[in-house]
């Protein structure tokens, strides 16, 4: 990497630490540290929410997905604006007016302590493991680019983030998120501009989309109703609605953000920012992938985008087979380029029939290239014994490192760091808040000074940061454990939404009903995952509906003395006029 790029990355990392610490006010009090004194402006919180959600995996993986599969994945986000409206109208006023620190604290006020402790524990377990995975993916890529070990790149993103999250609390997290979000969007727009400029002189933006369209990569709506298919219009609008309501409405990493605003109206505005901008932002990420596909149609692509495995195969025992495959791949790619030229020419001359024929030929040539690429991947899987090997995550990194000019490489790497750090910081802050508020203060030391709780929360931030770093470095060894925990986490996403629905919409529901309902919901989702091949998005619907039905019935049969506030007191009074 060029010296200029190193300087850019170093300046970025230093700036984040300095800025994160500089911008903290009232971080010596509990409310200031955890909730920014409930004084952050809605636009900063809105950007922070989006930055936490946009991880480095999005930047690296989703661009690769756009390259290989096109815009189809965008359907996943179609329900997000509706989810934001639902949450703004329902859960947000409840949380805000209850003056809680965490979403789970609200559950004790409404139900009982066991429901709070169980949901809080599920959050801590699943989030700490998934944070390790979120840290590991960009670290692997950055280790290849920067020539450092994975341990070093994990530390490079984790240590600054732990430092400013620990010292500055949620304010530091939110304000650095704002800058990181700006950097990420700038990086994406720069990538689009460079990609369009890198196309051959006679190939324009519309030609690039036409080529993508000819191979089905511009399919944005799949109206088939197939419950086993992950991304269709129906799973994206119905099933994903439940997932987004659960993620944005009940996950502490998101809830904590909008609790930092001074009023319900501002909290709503911060959420509605995602309603307006999430789909266009995700389309921009996928567009980078589409344009990389057009770019590599004309600039001969490597058979494997992952240079490390490419070298391993070339030097390995099956080198002859691999090299022969590579020669066939180069010929197929050249044939595809010729077909692409024909499409472009026919389109530019406005010859409709010729264009139709050319599009069909191009699609067939692209299928040849894909088939050979699949053969190459199969070969890697056989040689390395990695059953799930895929080089899709290396497409964007390869483009950055081999095709961008010095300066821009540093900027894009800083953007990837930004995406990683904004997610890590948000999660760490939420993990620390839940540990202290829902467990330490609740069960260990109910009465202590703010200074004491702040000290414990700083220790908790370092603990969770260190644990996630270890998981990230050892992700390969721990993969089965991570998978189990993540699966466990996915069982509870829809189910926990069901608990919150019971809390705010079913006045008769009690703690016993909510707790038994939660267990029943998770059990049903686990059974669905084990015995059917229903796509995971639908698990959220199954979980939520099961919890509400079982929870309601159990609440009627198993009465409980009120241990917390009822929703008439906490929510109904608060909702009007806000």
């Amino acid at each position: 990497m060029h010296a200029l790029d190193w300087v850019i990355v170093a300046v970025y990392l230093t700036w984040m630490i300095w800025d994160g610490i500089r911008l903290t006010r009232r971080s010596g009090e509990l409310e200031g540290y955890f909730l920014g004194g409930r004084s952050l402006p809605w636009w900063a919180v809105g950007l922070s929410v989006m930055a936490t959600q946009l991880s480095a995996i999005t930047l690296i993986g989703t661009t690769g997905q756009g390259y290989a599969d096109g815009m189809r994945f965008l359907q996943f986000y179609y329900a997000l604006p509706i989810a934001m409206i639902v949450l703004s109208a329902t859960l947000v006023p409840f949380f805000h007016n209850a003056k809680v620190f965490t979403a789970y604290e609200f559950l004790e006020r409404r139900f009982d302590v066991k429901t709070r402790a169980f949901t809080g524990l599920l959050f801590l377990l699943s989030r700490s493991m998934s944070l390790g995975v979120v840290m590991s993916a960009p670290a692997v890529f950055l280790s290849v680019v920067l020539g450092l070990s994975v341990t070093q790149t994990v530390l490079l993103s984790a240590v600054p983030t732990i430092l400013y999250t620990m010292l500055g609390g949620v304010q530091a997290v939110a304000w650095t998120d704002v800058k990181q979000m700006v950097l990420i969007v700038f990086g994406l727009v720069a990538a689009v501009v460079v990609l369009v400029m890198s196309l051959p002189a006679d190939v324009g933006f519309v030609d690039a989309l036409t080529l993508a369209g000819a191979t089905g990569r511009m399919r944005l709506f799949d109206f088939r109703f197939d419950h086993t298919e992950q991304y269709t219009f129906w799973s994206g609008t119905i099933a994903a609605l439940f997932l987004f309501c659960s993620y944005f409405g009940t996950d502490q990493s998101q809830v904590q953000r909008y609790l930092t605003t001074p009023s319900v109206a501002q909290a709503r505005s911060s959420l509605l920012m995602s309603a307006y901008w999430k789909i266009p932002l995700q389309a921009l990420v996928l567009l980078v992938g589409i344009l990389m596909f057009a770019f590599y149609t004309f600039a001969s692509p490597p058979m494997l985008f992952d240079a490390r495995h490419d070298r391993e195969l070339r030097d390995g025992p099956r080198a002859a087979e691999y090299n022969a495959l590579d020669a066939r791949f180069a010929a197929a790619a050249a044939a595809r380029t010729a077909a692409a030229r024909e499409v472009t020419e026919a389109r530019q001359r406005g010859e409709a029939e010729r264009l139709d024929a050319a599009r069909e030929t191009f699609n067939a040539r692209d299928a040849d290239v894909r088939a050979l690429h699949d053969d190459a991947r199969t070969l890697v899987r056989q040689v390395t014994r990695q059953a799930d090997y895929n080089d899709v995550n290396y497409v964007f990194p390869t483009f950055i490192t081999t095709r961008l000019p010095p300066g821009l490489v540093g900027l894009m790497i800083a953007a990837i760091f930004a995406a990683a750090m904004s997610t890590i910081a948000g999660e760490l802050s939420a993990l620390s808040t839940t540990s202290v508020i829902d467990f330490y203060r609740r069960f260990v030391r109910p009465v202590a000074t703010d200074a004491h709780y702040l000290f414990i929360s700083k220790v908790a931030t370092v603990f969770w940061g260190a644990l996630a770093s270890v998981v990230a470095v050892r992700a390969a060894d721990l993969s089965s454990l991570i998978q189990v925990v993540n699966q466990f986490g996915s069982f509870f996403y829809g189910s926990i939404l069901g608990v919150f629905i019971l809390a705010v919409a079913v006045p008769r529901a009690n703690g016993n009903g909510a707790f038994v309902g939660l267990l029943a919901g998770m059990g049903l989702v686990a059974a669905t995952a084990a015995y059917t091949n229903t796509a995971f998005l639908w698990h959220n619907v199954i979980g939520a509906v099961a919890v509400v039905i079982v929870g309601y019935i159990v609440s009627l049969l198993w009465k409980q003395q009120s241990t917390g506030i009822r929703n008439q007191e906490s929510g109904n009074r608060a909702a009007p006029g806000t």
Binding site: P81, I85, R219, L220, F221, A265, L272, G577
Partner: peptide, 30 residues
């Protein structure tokens, strides 16, 4: 409350416009 309702209606109108735009994009390029 009526202010919020107007905001929600605006979000839904923009949402429908975005989805329609994306659908037309698919029709044009596929």
């Amino acid at each position: 409350v009526s202010g919020m309702r107007a905001t929600y209606v605006r979000v839904i109108i923009v949402w429908l416009a975005v989805l329609t735009g994306l659908y037309l994009l698919q029709r044009y390029f596929s």
